[in-house]
Design a protein around this nucleic acid. Structure first.
Lengths: 218, 218, 218, 218
DNA sequence: AATGAATGAGCCTTCATTCAT
DNA sequence: TATGAATGAAGGCTCATTCAT
């Protein structure tokens, strides 16, 4: 059949499909509106329930305009995951300083993440759904973060403030703690009483991280 | 349910849609085939990519037969999440014994979970996707597990083996560690070298849990 | 991207994609209705203007029913071309008899084709459009017909009624004459005066075929 | 035009939509680029698969520029068909001379057409597709050619070199032969052995035309 | 209980054409 | 004249669910 190149042939991963870059100022503004609208839409409805037409409606542009900037709904989702990953990193990084001890850095990083998540609750749904929509970026997202934690641990070992056998396993454990306390205290909140502050939660986790839960004499 | 707003008038929430219980032996066998087939299908494809017709094809029954046993695709998914939650619990419970110390219990529980996940890798995808398909069962799943951990922590505090200020926060942190090391070492594996055993991973996490990562003198 | 197997991946020619065979009597009736409706629709509008929904409307079935029997609009078109090729052949064959001379056979074949085209004017549009929709079946259609004509010529040579150097070239020339007089006198007709009968046209072409147009003495 | 019923209110037939004539040298160059690009594009993809944006990309101009020169995709197609018809005629005419006999003229005309088609294979696809895109120009194209052949036949009759009952029917038959041997030997070629020359094919067809295929004594 | 044909709402994507600059 | 962003109607296809047998 030589007809229709029937709708988006499932893109093989090798094919980069770089989203089109706008050449005018107006184009840049439209692209921004689409990205913002889609973050909200995906956060509220999840990938499958989200619709391109609803996204363009939110953005206040015509349906077809979407395809001026993205090859497909999938492509937009991928762009968004990258964007959010970047934002998390930037936001965490700016909370750290050279004068902190390694444990303080770890605590500050968690607090920064929790504050970010408080402002961008949709990040949980979007990242989590990447497991199904784009497994590669899901895996990359967590491996990247674990890698950064592991690097920090290595510096702590070097500095003699951490046991010298901590490594990758601990990095993944720390990431898991951070993600789940964020889910519990930031995304789901308390229900009745006010949610504890990001700093309170971070301090509690940091205590466990530093000393464990065993009683002194045990 | 946040999925397809199908022709069927949205059922009011009160209507539990109890799945039909088969009355004959033949019926019981068909139901079992459907459940097994759907676990595989959902594990491989995720909820949205999975299709009822593919599930019935795997099960070797006609499409229409599905609706003799389940009200909807969603209902099947819900049943599956409950089933898996139960299985995880049973499997963990059987690994514990009265003679263990609290920390040993915690370690054994994690090891049991990792072994279970090794056999049922699909559990990650299925539970995770519940966040989108049936948020309530997703939340309930994790709250239930956290609750069980918290109970064990309370017993440890009572017994004087844990610091007396550990509680819910620590329970969620522990659950997060467990989930993420499972994701890293069981679901994703090593790539090159053989994945570490469930016991090795559990021991490593338990050390962090007991003593933290700070160096002795720090 | 692991999502939607995005609409009919352009089928590679190797993949047969056999249309689904109905298992019940009702199914056979529905399939027949769809084939008839699509012949009319394609004949009236051509492939691109034809729409699946219009075809199902004509057939009096629901849109989705179409996909119970065909993988795609393309697949239906392919099936139709085969069907028409078969019908042309059958109709021509039944007009021939063993007692005819080779030239009489050739004339009878053309007359039969013209009568068929008179009843099924859509065949021209459908076959012609295959050049664009499914080039392979277009080429196959004409090569098959030319092959049949060539075989008949060979028999005439053997019998000594044709010059002994006629062959493939003459076969294609004959097919071209037949197709174009069909287009002129059957499909387009006369406008004012009544169109000549199939037999009249066939006789005229046969005279050219037998003796050419040169004057006796020339 | 049988294509897209676009937003634009269907233009009444009276409005010829004369393509805009460029006033500057730069304009003339742009128009030429567009025409050349579209001949290639339509030849490669056919009308429906061809896209205005691909044509402008080939031509190296912006999308919007297209509408400076043509009212629509259809208008461009129509212009192209006329252009090709003209080219065929010019090319054939230049191959004929006053000294030739009528049969020699017929042979030379076919040879010239075949040579032209060899250089412009796209002509087949474009003319054929006119049947669907612009039926009027399709019909006109063939009626014009048949008319020219008929005129030549009349001259042959007058000169006494043709039987005196040849006329329109023979004209259409001749055109059909010419078109189909072109399709067979020029457009599709041989596959393995080199395609026969235009002259060889023309000579073969001319023999059939002059004397028919019946054996001498038959 | 089982079967499989039938239903139709829903949504992604294409692309000719318009328009503001 | 040229540019390229914006528009939106249109249509192919999917698949959960229903229904007649």
């Amino acid at each position: 059949m030589a007809t229709r190149k029937n709708q988006a042939a499932t893109r093989s991963d090798g094919d980069a499909g770089r989203d089109k870059v706008p050449r005018t100022e107006r184009g840049r503004r439209t692209l921004r509106k689409l990205l913002d609208a889609s973050a909200t839409e995906f956060g509220e409805k999840g990938f499958h329930e989200a619709s391109v037409s609803s996204i363009t409606r939110r953005a206040g542009v015509a349906l077809g305009t979407f395809y001026t900037y993205f090859d497909s709904k999938d492509a937009l989702f991928r762009a968004l995951v990258l964007d959010l990953s970047d934002n998390v990193r930037t936001s965490a990084r700016s909370a750290l300083s050279e004068e902190m001890t390694q444990l303080e850095i770890e605590e500050a990083a968690l607090a920064a993440f929790l504050r970010f998540a408080r402002e961008h609750k949709e990040i949980y749904r979007i990242i989590d759904e990447a497991e199904f929509v784009d497994p590669q970026s899901y895996r990359t997202h967590y491996e990247t973060i674990a890698g950064r934690i592991e690097d920090r641990l290595a510096r702590g070992v070097e500095a003699g403030v951490y046991r010298d056998d901590v490594g990758e396993l601990e990095a993944w454990a720390i990431m898991g703690m951070n993600v789940f306390v964020g889910l519990r205290y930031v995304v789901w909140g308390e229900g009745d009483k006010p949610a504890p502050s990001a700093e309170t939660v971070a301090k509690g986790v940091n205590r466990l991280l530093a000393k464990g839960i065993a009683a002194r004499g045990a």
